[in-house]
Design a binder for these strands. Structure first.
Lengths: 120, 120
DNA sequence: CTGGATCCCTATCGATACTG
DNA sequence: CAGTATCGATAGGGATCCAG
């Protein structure tokens, strides 16, 4: 049912758009994905997200930390270690986004079959 | 359970990131929201999304059409009418994103109470 | 009404070099 | 290792004007 959207207040709409624009920023989803998959270190994330530069990773991590989606903890060893982890809020966000994966999987296959049909 | 992400293949990850970056583009979510709420005309969407300019609306509508999330149909009246509607794929995307609204509502209230506590 | 074309400006990006 | 600083390139965005 699509009509559900008609009964959502404006505040919810703004949060919705805000969340999407944050997570939809370039690299954001990749970084969250890396963390959800177990990465904790700066360099780990850097390896796991192809094309991502250190500068941008710093910037995104700061944004995501400000949004309370991840935590940053400094471990005073030598050299210093920094751990990044999803917060509870961040983990639940990722759970909410699982629906997008199902959606993507479903429509990817349908598009493929449609292409196959038109090609025959 | 967060570990679910570990068992997702790379193709799904790319789709996931791609979808998010499309929908997370500025105005995209607002436009989809407007359409989900019943808007069909160019000018209607323009009114429903504050701050959106015509130029950008044209651009986003094209992207979303290319992504098969919406359809564009020209009705040969005078003056010409153009209708935009969510496709089945688009509607299901919006359904998948409902989870984000719930997430936003939930954590908005928790953050508010936390603020209240720290303020006392 | 819908939307293309242009100009200009700002934010953002990527690469590189450098610091604790 | 985990950033910060700077810089040139570019893409995105707003305003305005024009056209079917």
């Amino acid at each position: 049912m699509v009509g559900t959207w008609e009964h959502i207040d404006d505040a919810a709409c703004r949060r919705f758009q805000g969340s999407l624009e944050l997570v939809g920023q370039r690299w954001s989803s990749g970084i969250l994905l890396a963390l959800a998959r177990g990465a904790t270190r700066f360099s780990e994330v850097l390896e796991l997200v192809p094309g991502l530069s250190g500068r941008l990773l710093t910037a995104r991590l700061k944004q995501l930390t400000d949004a309370d989606l991840i935590t940053r903890s400094v471990i005073p060893t030598t050299p210093v270690q920094v751990r990044y982890e999803l917060t509870e809020r961040g983990r639940e966000l990722m759970e909410a986004l699982q629906a997008l994966v199902s959606w993507g999987a479903r429509w990817e296959s349908e598009r493929a079959s449609a292409t196959a049909l038109s090609g025959s």
